[in-house]
Design a protein around this nucleic acid. Structure first.
Length: 564
RNA sequence: UGCCCGAUGGUGUAAUGGUAGCACAACAGACUCUGGAUCUGUUUGUUCUGGUUCAAGUCCAGAUCGGGCAACCA
């Protein structure tokens, strides 16, 4: 995208306005942003919003966006997460080019920067224990008091800092603090920790370091090292901004990056925090990070969401500083909108009941032409087999049907999609369970393809599969992970997990048209009148097909039926 | 009771001192070989109180409500 196009970009927001101003004023000639996840979990749809903003802004201004692993806490981070993050960002459709970085690669420069601050008397080595520090720090309504080590000689701090690095002190005993303002109303400015001693194996630097920089110290440096112009992050870092600016000022970076905060995404009927998601995975409440019910990118991918629909969603929710809840229905809308346009249709009977066409010759079969996608004529047609015995949805037959039921019932005529008009002549019922075991029909041979030569109309069209040709498939029906709109809003003493939807996964066995046994990989189908489905990327096999429901079709009938 | 940030229909978002608009959702109707899609229509909004101004959602003051901040997490 060139800058000319960006001038015509109809969707702007307060961040893009700032960036545009900075370009216009000549403050920056090249825009550089970054997406800096910590590799301590899988990315979720909330990160997708941030990714779309970070990469999107850079692209619109013809700049670049760096992907950076913010790995300053080795206790929580690992390579599996690094790889998953790279995969997910790529899958979403973004390209960081050569700009893939690790914070850990800056540790030496960060160490030097900390030493510089000590030499400037802007930092010192503190020996207070964490408990002692609590007293010194004070509380929001009361100022803190200076650490007794605050004014120790520069040389002493420098020496201690070097010995911290050399491993001469136990974990947590000493730390390096920035010397700022112990009476600041902003707690983050009350001599925050820059370096702590932590003997943990780092997935990238191994055991080279036993001291690690904190986020507050590391982040502005990483941004500055990479010449980031706009450091976009979520609202909770707003109170950290004065500290971010302080480090950059004291270290005299000539072109300091500017941090701008936006509201993180909250979605109804799910949780969106790494901690919660990790808990769901670890406690086995879902089947891993890529469980199709998870709001993780990996979960959405396996569920069958498209990258484009997620990007569209992120565009539509906008960028503001208002911390609200976005209706998950909007995400589903973006998906349906795309899939309606692109998904080939197929017929699959999820809850089968047998139909016998009594006036259709036994043993006969014929192949009927079916349209692949009525929204896209270029998708062509396919042949589907038809025979005397079929399966239809149990829901599509009613023994005693109300007027507005436009499907099969004794004496009523319906269209079999792309097949024939059939009239129900009777049915069989299990005398014990009352279950319908078989529906009997007659067909009108003159209506092949679904149209009656005499012009008579039928109100209902139902889908079907030919019994001898049908393929058995496992179908996994997914519903919202939580039954509460705001799962985290529970009364004191209660846990958000009580809001888990116990019906979020239903496994059923369906009978599907033969073409669904061996589809090209990654094809999202619309099972007509039911929903969108994709083969499960893990469990699908030709001899035992497994389909995931991505999202059901909108269904106005259940509402109508409910008001009957 | 400290500091920071925010507040526009049910939800999300636009209007940058000049007609409150868009999308989702909901509802109604039309159409339909998917009770899908499509089309049409309807309902619902500037938190409050003052002030500045010819004119305020927008600027100012105060209030109310909501969110964030007291890891050697990010």
């Amino acid at each position: 995208m060139n800058t000319n196009e960006s001038n015509h970009n109809p969707t702007s927001d307060f961040i893009r306005d700032i960036v545009a101003d900075d370009v216009q004023s000549g403050k920056h000639t090249r825009i550089i942003t970054r997406f800096p996840p910590e590799p301590n979990g899988y990315l979720h749809i909330g990160h997708a919003k941030a990714i779309c903003i970070d990469f999107g802004v850079a692209a619109e201004f013809n700049g670049e966006c760096h992907l950076r692993m913010d790995d300053t806490n080795p206790a929580k981070e690992n390579m599996e997460y690094v790889e998953s993050i790279r995969n997910d960002v790529r899958w979403l459709g973004f390209d960081w080019g050569p700009h893939f970085y690790f914070s850990a690669d800056y540790f030496e420069r960060m160490y030097e920067a900390a030493a510089t601050l000590i030499r400037k008397e802007k930092a010192y080595v503190c020996e207070l224990t964490m408990d002692e520090w609590k007293d010194y720090r004070g509380i929001p309504t009361q100022p803190g008091k200076p650490s007794p080590f605050r004014n120790r000689p520069i040389g002493e701090s420098l020496d201690l800092f070097a010995r911290m690095r050399a491993g001469q002190f136990p974990d947590g005993t000493l730390c390096v603090r920035a010397k700022i303002d112990m009476s600041s109303p902003n707690l983050h400015l009350r001599d925050p920790v820059m370096y702590r001693i932590m003997r943990a194996h780092h997935y990238r630097t191994g055991d080279k370091w036993c001291i690690y920089p904190t986020y507050d110290f590391a982040h502005p440096l990483e941004d500055a090292f990479e010449n980031i112009t706009h450091s976009l992050c979520t609202l909770e870092f707003e109170v950290h901004r004065p500290l971010y600016d302080w480090f950059l000022r004291e270290l005299e970076f000539p072109q300091p990056p500017r941090q701008i905060e936006f509201a993180r995404l909250n979605l109804t009927y799910t949780v969106l925090s790494k901690r919660r998601l990790l808990e769901l995975v670890r406690d086995g409440l879902v089947n891993g990070w890529d469980d199709p019910r998870m709001p993780t990118i990996a979960g959405l991918r396996r569920r069958g969401f498209t990258p484009a629909s997620i990007r569209t969603f992120c565009k539509r929710i906008g960028v503001t500083k208002f911390d609200g809840y976005t209706d998950i229905a909007l995400l589903e809308f973006c998906l349906r909108e795309e899939l309606n346009r692109t998904a080939p249709r197929a017929m699959a009977v999820l809850n089968p009941v047998k139909v016998v066409i009594e006036n259709y010759p036994a043993g006969q079969e014929e192949w009927l032409e079916a349209v692949n996608n009525p929204e896209d004529s270029s998708a062509g047609t396919r042949q589907v087999p038809f025979s005397r015995e079929l399966y239809i949805e149990a829901d599509d037959f009613m023994e005693d049907a109300p007027r507005k039921f436009f499907r099969l019932a004794p004496g009523r005529e319906v269209r079999l999609r792309y097949g024939y008009l059939v009239t129900c002549t009777g049915f069989d019922k299990d005398p014990v369970t009352g279950r319908i075991t078989q529906v009997r029909c007659n067909y009108d041979p003159a209506t092949r393809g679904g149209n009656a030569p005499d012009g008579r109309k039928v109100k209902g069209t139902i889908h079907w599969v030919s019994a001898p040709h049908a393929v058995r498939a496992e179908v996994r029906l997914y519903d919202r992970l939580f039954k509460a709109e705001h799962p985290e809003e529970v009364s004191a003493g209660q846990d958000y997990k009580m809001n888990l939807n116990t019906e979020s996964l239903k496994v059923i066995h369906a009978l599907v048209e033969p073409g669904l046994a061996n589809p090209a990989p990654d094809i999202r189908f619309q099972f007509e009148r039911k929903g969108y489905f994709i083969q499960d990327r893990v469990d699908f096999r030709q001899d035992s097909p497994v389909y995931n429901q991505i999202v059901p079709l909108k269904d106005s009938w259940t509402k109508t039926a409910a008001t009957e």
